[in-house]
Design a protein around this nucleic acid. Structure first.
Length: 271
DNA sequence: AGCACTGTTTACAT
DNA sequence: TATGTAAACAGTGC
């Protein structure tokens, strides 16, 4: 489901709800969600306090008092914070019971989401986080040359390259379309034809669009409610994705498959 | 009924 | 190594 702004929205809402609480028990109903040995996962987490919730790219990170849970929601993962025994359905696969009588339920219709436990010293120095590239919201200084070199090294279409989380982190199918539209770059362009000025533009627009979307609590389309029942509002700001007409030149937008993903763009404005 | 589609990532084949 | 395809899974819509 979520891209960077949606994960950030989840992080912010959950931060208000569960920081300071202790995890007193864990129920794992579908073990493939957890990448660790189940006992290892449980033993390292039970009786630990949630001291902070952070994020890198599309990864949500629960910082415990002695380690971390890294959680990726993939397509449909959602968290619900509710009193014990007030919510249940067949798509809830992991339940964290908290010290105040509430539970944090992980619901995932398609079961694509994953969680893994990492000790502090391994958090950013091992997969998956070691492979996460520039986060447009978190990173303070941009190494534009590095990003340019990584993009310029590839011959595949620029949209596919921007979905590669090891270069710029957080872009998914919706926001890639929005960023490329804002930059007037055709998503079919070969990555090695993208200029340094265009890379600068991609970075600038990613930051601007992500910030604006986060202010609006992300995008809610198709998945009735977003995570946590928070309804995002950024779908009202989308300029190309799901649209029929170019807001700039009024021509009919193209809708192609790129890398298997539906891609919206304007063939006259985006070169 | 059957197929296409879905805000993601990765294992595998070439 | 780089790139393209299929698979992980379940639901919705035509």
């Amino acid at each position: 489901m979520p891209e960077l702004p949606e994960v950030e929205t989840v992080r912010r809402v959950l931060s208000e709800q569960i920081i300071g609480l202790k995890i007193v028990n864990i129920e794992i109903r579908y073990s493939s969600i957890v990448e660790d040995d189940i006992d290892y996962f449980k033993n390292n987490i039970i009786n630990k306090e949630i001291i902070n919730i952070s994020r890198l790219g599309k990864f949500l990170i629960f910082n415990l008092d002695n380690g971390n849970i890294i959680s990726h929601l993939r397509m449909e993962g959602k968290y619900f914070y509710v009193p014990n025994n007030t919510l249940d359905n067949k798509h809830i696969h992991v339940i964290f019971y908290l010290s105040n009588g509430y539970m944090l339920c992980y619901q995932d219709v398609r079961k694509f989401g994953r969680m893994v436990y990492k000790k502090n010293d391994a958090l950013y120095t091992t997969p998956p986080l070691i492979n996460v590239g520039f986060d447009p919201i978190i990173s303070q200084n941009v190494n534009t040359d590095d990003i340019y070199n990584k993009i310029n090294n590839k011959k595949i279409e620029i949209k596919t390259t921007l979905l590669d989380q090891s270069i710029i982190a957080g872009l998914g199918n919706i926001y890639v379309d929005e960023v490329l539209y804002a930059c007037r770059i055709n998503p079919h362009r070969a990555s090695n034809t993208i200029t340094i000025d265009e890379v600068n533009s991609i970075i600038t627009e990613s930051i601007r669009i992500f910030k604006l979307s986060i202010e609006n609590k992300g995008t809610t389309i198709r998945s009735y409610t977003s995570s946590l029942n928070v309804i995002g509002n950024y779908q009202n700001f989308l300029l190309v994705h799901t649209k029929n007409e170019c807001s700039h030149c009024k021509s009919v937008l193209k809708r192609d498959k790129i890398n298997g993903r539906t891609t919206y763009y304007c063939n006259s404005c985006q070169r």
